[in-house]
Amino acid sequence: MNPIKIRPAVPDSPADAAALAAAVLRNRTYMRPWEPYRTEAYYTPAGQAERLADGGRRWFAVDETEDRETGGRIAGVATLSGIVLGPFRSGSLGYWVDPAYGGRGLATALTEEVCRAAREDLGMHRVEAGTLLDNHASQRVLTKCGFERIGTAPRCLHIDGEWRDHHLFQRILHDDPPPRG
């Protein structure tokens, strides 16, 4: 296997859109129990290019190569979405790692990188995340990365054909006041 690198995904990169489409298609069956319904367009480079272009999210890729021309083989992805600055300074973390790359600490490294970028690049105060009640692996990753469980949201998201409860977690990144102005 090539070296693994965590990097920002590039919103206007056809190579990243193609590599991400290949990754989500490759992991379609694996991800089904944790994902909302997806149209067929979602699994195409055009569908992933549209997602990458969503200005309300920051994207991070776990890439098996540093060759940005080919887009590499994406082994996992994280998003920081719902970013609100001002006095709230918060956002929501979502992530997944291809099971072929499991057990190597990639989800932990990916989560830490998103938290680092949230604090250092955006000056965010907190990051939140939710997991299905039975997603113990993600709960372990979040706990290992300093997230605390703050509650349970009944029927939070429509996942795999039904409304599913989620445990909610947060990580406080700092207690500095927000910038003035």
Rank of each mutant, 00 (worst) to 15 (best):
M1I: 09
P3L: 10
D12E: 15
D12A: 15
S13H: 11
D16G: 10
A18E: 13
A19N: 10
L20Y: 13
A21S: 12
A21E: 09
A22N: 09
A22C: 07
A23K: 03
V24N: 08
L25H: 12
W34N: 10
T39K: 13
A41Q: 14
Y43N: 03
E50T: 15
G55M: 04
F60D: 04
A61L: 15
A61F: 15
A61I: 13
V62K: 05
E64T: 15
E69K: 13
T70F: 12
T79F: 01
L80W: 02
V84W: 02
L85S: 11
S92M: 05
G94P: 01
V97S: 06
G102C: 10
R104F: 12
G105H: 05
T108D: 04
L110K: 06
V114R: 01
R116I: 00
L122V: 02
M124Q: 10
M124R: 04
L133D: 09
L133N: 11
H136Y: 13
A137D: 13
S138Y: 09
R140S: 11
V141N: 03
V141W: 03
T143R: 13
G151D: 08
T152H: 12
P154V: 08
L157N: 11
D160F: 11
D160H: 15
G161S: 09
H166W: 08
L168I: 04
I172K: 00
H174I: 00
